[in-house]
């Protein structure tokens, strides 16, 4: 199971989720629209500084979570390298680093239930369209909870396959994995219903 919220305490944990997300939105917008490489890289450096202010261990954990970013950076670098647009490439990479860096920082320092409550509040107007405002928020929680479970499943099935075969399993695991996912989904729907479901009935009675 995945927990994106870092157990290493930082001052950022105490900030309100809404404050952090608003700051993130403004920051991302500014960085994305900016054409000035010095401003963009300054912003990235600022983000790095924020990580370091949380302690070395926290910064290292943050860096680990940002590893998938390397892949995007490599593609951007390659593309702009081929075109010979080095300055343009450096600008885009700076934007990626700054925006994803801060987004990751917010994720690492915000409790999932706070995040969910916020999503719920933002989604509240959906109620007028007849959509349960908890739905997007709860989906977020379930995705966070079950993506890693599925990955673990895939690894376990892969091992079970390899224990009895010399060939690699590849696509042959797709069907059993999908069936297991459906089975999981049924269990989760039970667990959710056992505690009141997506639309909690508590309000109807005391």
């Amino acid at each position: 199971m995945l927990s994106l919220t870092s157990p290493i305490r930082t001052p950022y944990h105490a900030l309100r989720a809404s404050t952090k997300l608003l700051a993130l939105c403004v920051f991302t917008l500014a960085v994305t629209l900016s054409g000035d490489p010095r401003a963009v890289w300054g912003a990235a450096a600022l983000v790095a500084g924020l990580y370091l202010a949380g302690g070395l261990r926290f910064a290292a954990a943050g860096l680990r979570m940002l590893r998938p970013l390397v892949f995007f950076v490599a593609i951007v670098a390659l593309w702009h390298g081929i075109l010979g647009e080095w300055a343009e490439g450096a600008l885009v990479i700076g934007k990626l680093a700054a925006a994803f860096g801060l987004a990751n920082l917010v994720t690492m320092t915000t409790r999932l239930d706070d995040m969910i409550a916020l999503v719920e509040r933002v989604a509240a107007p959906l109620a007028r369209l007849g959509i349960e405002p908890r739905l997007p928020a709860l989906s977020l929680a379930l995705v966070m909870r079950f993506v890693p479970v599925q990955l673990q499943r895939a690894a376990a099935l892969g091992e079970a396959w390899r224990a009895r075969s010399r060939r690699r399993p590849g696509w042959r695991l797709v069907t059993p994995l999908a069936l297991l996912a459906i089975d999981d989904a049924e269990h989760v729907s039970d667990a959710l219903r056992a505690r009141g479901g997506v639309r909690p009935p508590a309000s109807s009675k005391g």
Binding site: M1, S3, T5, L112, L142, R145, D184, H187, D190, R195
Partner: peptide, 20 residues
């Protein structure tokens, strides 16, 4: 099959918010 949230306290608090 039962735990919906990634941390202990969130998991415990969920049922209580469900109760209103």
């Amino acid at each position: 099959h039962q735990i919906i949230f990634p941390t202990v306290e969130e998991e415990l608090a969920f049922g209580l918010t469900q109760q209103g």
